[in-house]
Design a protein around this nucleic acid. Sequence first.
DNA 1: GTGAAAGCGCTAACAG
DNA 2: CTGTTAGCGCTTTCAC
Lengths: 344, 344
Amino acid sequence: MVDLTLEDIALQAGVSRSTVSRVLNHQPNVSQDIRQRVMDVIEVTGFQPNAAARSLASHRSWTIGLVLPKGVGAFFSDPYFPRLTQGIAQACNMYEYTLGLFIVNSVEDEEKIYPRISRKGLLDGILVQAGSTGDHLVERLIQNEMPIVALGRPINQCCVNYIDIDNYGSSRIAVEHLVKLGKKRIATITGPQESMAGRERMRGYIEVLGDNGFELDEKLIAYGDFTQASGYSLIRDLLPAKPDALFAGSDSIAYGALQAINEVGLKVPEDIAVVGFDDLTGPNTSLSKHQLTTIHQPVFQFGMSAVELLIDVIENGMTPVRELIVNTELIVRETCGAPKDNES
Amino acid sequence: MVDLTLEDIALQAGVSRSTVSRVLNHQPNVSQDIRQRVMDVIEVTGFQPNAAARSLASHRSWTIGLVLPKGVGAFFSDPYFPRLTQGIAQACNMYEYTLGLFIVNSVEDEEKIYPRISRKGLLDGILVQAGSTGDHLVERLIQNEMPIVALGRPINQCCVNYIDIDNYGSSRIAVEHLVKLGKKRIATITGPQESMAGRERMRGYIEVLGDNGFELDEKLIAYGDFTQASGYSLIRDLLPAKPDALFAGSDSIAYGALQAINEVGLKVPEDIAVVGFDDLTGPNTSLSKHQLTTIHQPVFQFGMSAVELLIDVIENGMTPVRELIVNTELIVRETCGAPKDNES
DNA sequence: GTGAAAGCGCTAACAG
DNA sequence: CTGTTAGCGCTTTCAC
């Protein structure tokens, strides 16, 4: 297939280059029959406009970047980022954007990548995962007046567009569920307190206990890092305090804890009820003998909404600041010991 | 930061635009002091050349695409693709390429995405995951004379650059290991036979048994799909035939089988030895009570090599056809029941 | 509603 | 070694 240009199409259709351009960009001011004639030629020739030329002339690349800062790269082993990425990619396909992926693996990467993503003509906008290192990047990017949306609410940062779930409210619902089930000694293994998610989920736990007149017992609290390994090891520190329930800061933590609980011979949910957070259906959940009660966050949809939000920012400008909170849902399964719902 | 152009830099440095361009592109014919002067101005101003303009003029976008065809999207839940993607992204950072990610989620996507990735001016080259749907895409892309490298060897396709591991040879090593351990009734749960990996691993199994004078027993063979779920359910069909060993077509299959074996009260490796394939350290492996003996494939490195291969193709043309085989390694752990290595 | 013409910001011969 | 000069292929005023 020889390289075609607008000019070639124009020639074949017997019109001017501008007209072909108008048809290509779905502009209104073209008569029906000419439009059809041009479209036919495009169809037959399989013409695709040159992306670089289009970007250069229009100052729009139709490409957005997904930036995963150092640190979250490690999280790539859990199903969260893959799912998120899929949602983002899906939305990009829908809106005919190209997705650029920037994974920061090291400190050196960070400095090298930054100029590349902020250079003109490459990206129309940026999605950046919030988190300790990410937030630093967010700051620099914003000063560059590049359309940007943070995935998760950045810490120490105002006036940033972001999309997030209601971590605080959701964890309240999870812990309240445990309270309603009559649990009296509710333990928690939280995520990292440097992350907004870890912090807010913790805050929900603390406040629900307070609201219900429970005393905070440090022996029932452990600080993990969202991983299965941390759940597995930290629950052992908590067990001596005889908890009758565990609110895990993530499903991974919950699964780790579940396994350890199992190994010491305790029963779930009889001896200890467990509620997780995330509901990422992955290999773990499918075969687990425990059906985990958890907070479902719609990761795929979250990714899609993030793209939509970013496109909105690209098209309508950075002000006002957008803050989008996506709904979660408590999924009652078996590990909390709640009576079964009446099913129809 | 106001938008700078080459011209601005040239003005400030007191040279011509071309000279700045030469400095930017690390071309040799610039005197040391002028080069320095230009670099200083670039440094101070933080100038970054416009990506679109550069692509348009040079016919190089410094962007490569990673295409994950429909079907492999589902695999996104296991750790393989995330790791692979990380390796690819890492190499892109190293060589200062931008990575475009194209995940095909549906049939409609397929038709919409194809023209976008094959359009001029966007991508310098393409990495495409091989596999039933992928191979079809590979074909179309090749005709477009776009530099391309397949990840995994496409089926029914010659004359394609690809990178792969030696599935056949590796599975031979795994099964031979079992034979050497004195196993007589070696079962297998394979991956899908539509995939080269599934097929070749199966072939290794069959031939090693043949070489050792074993009869093929259909009761010891099950056809899975690489997932944990398939391992979990299919091993139950195999157990009545009293296997003393299992060669699993993937670690996921192995873990599924391990769990089922456990649940029926058999012991690993005493009653049944298990060898897997992949060695993707993920959440499953970390806490498993079984240390899986398996074939290690260096996924991250695989991704990096794929990028290097593609860059070679971009720079030196499509001929000759490149075929790159990456080495694997048998990792002897506990599930095969081999005596411990003497450790120093 | 359509065409002509002027760039977008850079690279790459080609002179000198 | 450096500057001048054409474009790269498209979008976008501005006329008509």
